[in-house]
Nucleic acid binder design. Structure first.
Lengths: 186, 186
DNA sequence: GTTGCCATGTAAGGTGTTACATGATTTA
DNA sequence: TAAATCATGTAACACCTTACATGGCAAC
C-alpha cells in the first residue's frame, strides 16, 4: 500500500487537495496509479480516519468545496518509518514475454508484425518518459539531494525502456538466423 | 487476463493437470503468478466452462482424483489469436523508487542501510534467476526456435536485474558527492 | 458550442495474494 | 517423527482500473 506513503510524501512538503495530488500523480511513471482518482480520494479518507492527516474544508459558492489535507506529526512519523523500511524488489509484469513463449505457433510475418508493434510502442513510451523528464527538470527542487535523486529515478525509467528496446533489436537481428519452425510441429 | 493464455500455451504442447501447471508456473519469473494455485484452478474451471479445454477425471483410491485438461480446437484458435494480438507494454512497479523520492528525510546512515538492503536483495534475486535459467536450459526444447526465444526471455530477466544493480551502484558512487540535506528543511 | 479545467466522489468489476482445508504416501 | 510431494479446492481480502455522476466557469 505505497500509495498511502506517496501521498504522505507529497503532504510532507506542503498541504494539498485531492485534486492537486491527482495532478502530481498523473504523468509520473514511478507513481504508477497515475491519476486514478478513486484510490487517491479513498486513501485520503483512510489517512484522515487514521489521523495521519487533518482536513480543512474551504467552502466555495460554486461547485464542490476544496478539502485541503495537512500531514500530522503521527503522519510524519509513519512516513519516516516507511522511508527507512526494507525495500521491496521491483515487480515487473511483461505479458509480451508470455506471448513470446509460444510464438513458434505464429507465421513469420505475423511474428514480424507483433515485433514491429512492440518496438513502436516502446519507442513512443520512451519519448513520453523523456519528455516528462525534461519538463520535470525545469521545475525547481527542494534540495540538491532531492534534485539528484529525482534525476536518478528518471534515468532509471529511461534506461529501462532503452534497455528493452536494445534487447528487442538484438532479438530481431538474431531471429532470422534461427531455423524456422517445423510445419505441423504441435 | 494472460494467465488464461499461459495455461492454454502449456496445454497446446501437452495435456496437463492443475497441479502440473502449478509446478510449471512456480519458479518462472515471466509467469509472475508463480504457483498461485487459486488462480490456476479457477482459470481452469473458467476455460472448461468456455469449452476451450476438456477435462478427463482420473479416479484414484487415495486422495483427490486427478483432472487432466486437454486443449480443444476452439482453445487453440483462441490461443493463436492472442499470440498475434497487439502486445502490451511491460508494467513495472518499483516501490523502492517511491521511497527514494523522499529519502532526503532520512539520515545518511539510514539511507545507506536502505541501499545496502536493496542491493543485497537484488543480488540474491539475480542469482536465483540465473540458477533457474541454468536449470531450464538443461531440459530440452521443442524446436530450435523455441529454445532461442526462451533463452532470450531468460536474458531479458537477467539483464533487467543486472541493469538495476548497475544503476544502484552508480547512485551509491555519486551520492556522496551531492551536498547533503539541510537540517530542518521541511 | 465544445473542449478543458476545477473539484469532489461512488459503483462495479477485474486481478492478485494469503490463508485455510483435507488427507494419503513417500522421503529424510 | 517431521517434512515434502501429490492433488484438489474455497474464502477473504487487498489492490487496481474503468466508468459513472455532477456542475460551474473559462477559453477557443
Amino acid at each position: 500500500m505505497s500509495i498511502k506513503y506517496a501521498i504522505l510524501g507529497f503532504l510532507s512538503w506542503k498541504s494539498l487537495t485531492g485534486y492537486e495530488l491527482k495532478k502530481l500523480f498523473t504523468g509520473s511513471e514511478t507513481l504508477y496509479w497515475s491519476g486514478n482518482n478513486n484510490q487517491i480520494y479513498t486513501t485520503l479518507a483512510q489517512l484522515y480516519r487514521e489521523k495521519l492527516v487533518t482536513k480543512e474544508v474551504q467552502h466555495q459558492e460554486s461547485s464542490p468545496s476544496r478539502k485541503v489535507y495537512t500531514i500530522t506529526d503521527t503522519g510524519l512519523a509513519a512516513l519516516k518509518q516507511w522511508l527507512a523500511a526494507a525495500p521491496e524488489l521491483p515487480q515487473l509484469k511483461n505479458s509480451f514475454l508470455i506471448q513470446l513463449m509460444w510464438e513458434d505457433q505464429l507465421e513469420p510475418d505475423e511474428l514480424n508484425a507483433l515485433l514491429d508493434n512492440y518496438e513502436e510502442e516502446l519507442r513512443v513510451r520512451l519519448l513520453m518518459v523523456q519528455e516528462q523528464e525534461r519538463r520535470r527538470k525545469a521545475s525547481p527542487a527542494a534540495t540538491p539531494r532531492t534534485a539528484y535523486l529525482w534525476d536518478m529515478i528518471g534515468k532509471n525509467w529511461i534506461s529501462f525502456y532503452e534497455h528493452e528496446l536494445n534487447w528487442l533489436r538484438q532479438l530481431r537481428q538474431e531471429l532470422p538466423n534461427v531455423p524456422p519452425k517445423q510445419e505441423g510441429s504441435r
